[in-house]
Simulated scan of single mutants.
Amino acid sequence: MKALRFEGRSILVTGGGSGIGRAAALAFAREGGRVLVADLDADAAGEAVEEIRALGGVAFAQRTDATNEDSIVSMVEQAVARHGPLRHAFNNVGLSREGTLETMTRVDWDWTLATTLTSTFLSMKHEVPAMRAAGGGTIVNTASMSGKIFTPAASPAYAAAKAGVIQLSHYASCAHAADGIRVNSVSPGLTATPLIARMFSVEQQNAIAGEAQVIARAVTPEEIAASVLFLSSDEAGMITGRDLEVAGGRH
């Protein structure tokens, strides 16, 4: 029988109630991980946990505001208290408000940076000492192709925030390699999350993807999750400070 890659390990997934985060939480649990599913939407987090437990996995949900430091502290403490020393974290919180460089308000700019970039900073700020105490671990952060190349649909705040996630991940990888902590990020292309599915049909998603990618379809949340698990696994033991594009050959 093939060994489970995350058997008995304590794992933290933010934004785990839906989309990419939910797919990753399920994937970690299938590989033996003991998962804390953190999400601002407590009902969505609870539903993800119910799905994991129905498959025989171990998980619990915690309502978490990733822009609030006290909430993040509680999240990390609960992950350790419930499942033991924290070994892996997937920071997947990120949203944007609309606007262009000329029309975006300061309120919407600040909200987007807080939700997408500051949330990642706060999560890592408290995950790192917990992992150092455990003798090491891995962190994967969700970035975006919008943080690397111009994407007309992305707001300037979202582009700046996701570029910040990539560089923050690289910074942390260098600063904490000696602690045995590897830090990477993933940059999805257009991903068929429930949010995108409500906005576009499958045919529309494929048409949009085909204009910017050599593989003319949207990425699935499960494909992003598979990349997150690889970067978190012992198989990727010499990979740190990298951003992995999962974007169908985006050009």
Rank of each mutant, 00 (worst) to 15 (best):
S71T: 07
Q205P: 08
L101H: 12
A61V: 07
G46K: 10
K125G: 04
A175Q: 13
M75S: 03
N68K: 11
M131N: 02
H126K: 07
G57R: 05
P194T: 08
D70G: 14
V214Y: 11
H176A: 05
A192R: 15
G84R: 00
A89T: 08
Q204A: 11
G237C: 06
Q213V: 08
A163H: 09
N141E: 05
G137A: 03
F200W: 15
E203D: 12
G32I: 05
T240M: 07
G164D: 07
W109H: 05
L122Q: 04
V107D: 14
A143D: 05
A153H: 08
L231M: 08
N141L: 11
G210K: 09
A218C: 05
S18T: 15
A209N: 06
G8D: 01
V128L: 14
A133Q: 10
R250W: 15
A25H: 04
L231C: 04
L190V: 04
M131P: 00
V49L: 02
I239H: 03
G249H: 09
S96K: 09
L195N: 13
V128G: 03
H126T: 02
R182Y: 08
A225C: 11
I224K: 08
K162H: 05
T191C: 09
A3Y: 10
I72D: 01
R217K: 15
H126G: 02
S10V: 03
T115C: 08
I181K: 02
